[in-house]
Simulated scan of single mutants.
Amino acid sequence: MSFPRIVAAIAAGLLFASSAIAAPAFKVEVTGNTSGAPMILIPGLASSGAVWDGTVQRYCGARRCHVLTLAGFAGVPAIDGPLLATAEQQLSEYIAANKLAQPVIVGHSLGGFLALKLAADHPEQVGRLVIVDSLPALAAVQMPSITSAQMKEMAAGMRVRMLGMDAAAHQAGQLQTLRTMITGEADVQRALAWGLESDRTTVANAMADLMGQDLRQNIARIKAPTLVMGSWIAYKNFGTREQFLQTYQDQYRQLPGVTIEMADNARHFIMLDDPDWMYDRIDQFLK
């Protein structure tokens, strides 16, 4: 990181810390033009903010960008209490404390879910939303009529299984999962390193929290124009492109004016697998 980026990160961090009572639910790296339009980038489960390095290079010269890494992920110290709820509240406080006017919020996977939750609960704070392969109700993908109680039961069982693995099984499971989510082996290994640096309890709790929530009705409160980019090629055994597109359309039905695009050459980490396709869609959306 360059010296100006370090100074900016420290300054933003101090401003955030002064407004927060609880332990920080994320760390922030700030870069770009101080007078540029603000953009906040949120990575997914067990990922570092470095997953956005290419995106930062693309957009964060003229723009002022705030790249998060959530607590407990990729070596950032974990916090007590629910990560998603705490991160949402602290991010709202961070936007207010730093006087960020209508920032663009970009979120991947769990980070996309957090972005949707923030925009639904604090609609006046968000200018535009860019959601990278994330859904309002992940547990409802195969069971659209799933109940809240069933979601929570499914999430609790998954949490128990995740925490019940020994270290070797945990690492093997992460590697297997990442190879379905990312095409390039170098990128797989990089993401694996972030996962191994993450706090296992935080990861399991956050994943269970994600699986146990349903925002399909809540997103009707979002005022920000929203671009959603989904992927499907890694999951061909579970359905066709048309079926996955229909799932996205169904889950985002309550969000007025949402734009949904499906990547045909990228797995879950679209920003790593097909960044040019992603940048083209974002460029058109931000015009």
Rank of each mutant, 00 (worst) to 15 (best):
I233F: 15
D250H: 14
Q254M: 10
Y235N: 13
Q246G: 15
P225F: 09
Y235L: 13
I233K: 05
W232P: 11
W232D: 12
T247Y: 05
R241E: 07
R253K: 15
Q246D: 07
Y252E: 02
R241K: 15
V228K: 07
F238K: 04
G230C: 06
I222D: 05
F238W: 03
T226K: 06
K236A: 03
A224E: 04
G230I: 00
Q243G: 08
T247Q: 06
N237W: 14
V228F: 01
T240Q: 01
T226E: 03
R253V: 11
S231T: 11
Y252R: 09
Y252H: 01
V228H: 01
Y235W: 11
K236E: 10
L245S: 03
Y248F: 13
G239I: 01
N237M: 11
Q249R: 13
Q243W: 01
L227E: 04
P225V: 13
A224V: 10
S231D: 11
I233W: 00
Q249D: 02
M229Q: 09
Q243L: 01
G230Q: 05
T226V: 10
I222Y: 11
K223V: 11
A234I: 02
M229N: 04
A224N: 05
T247L: 12
T226H: 10
W232S: 07
A224L: 14
V228N: 07
Q251E: 12
A234T: 00
T226A: 13
P225E: 01
R253T: 11
Q254V: 03
S231K: 10
F238A: 12
G230A: 01
G239Q: 12
I233G: 01
W232R: 00
L245H: 05
V228C: 13
Q254W: 02
T247C: 10
Q254G: 06
L227Y: 10
E242G: 08
G230H: 01
K223H: 11
Q249M: 05
T247H: 03
Q251T: 03
G230M: 00
K236T: 05
R253W: 00
Y235M: 07
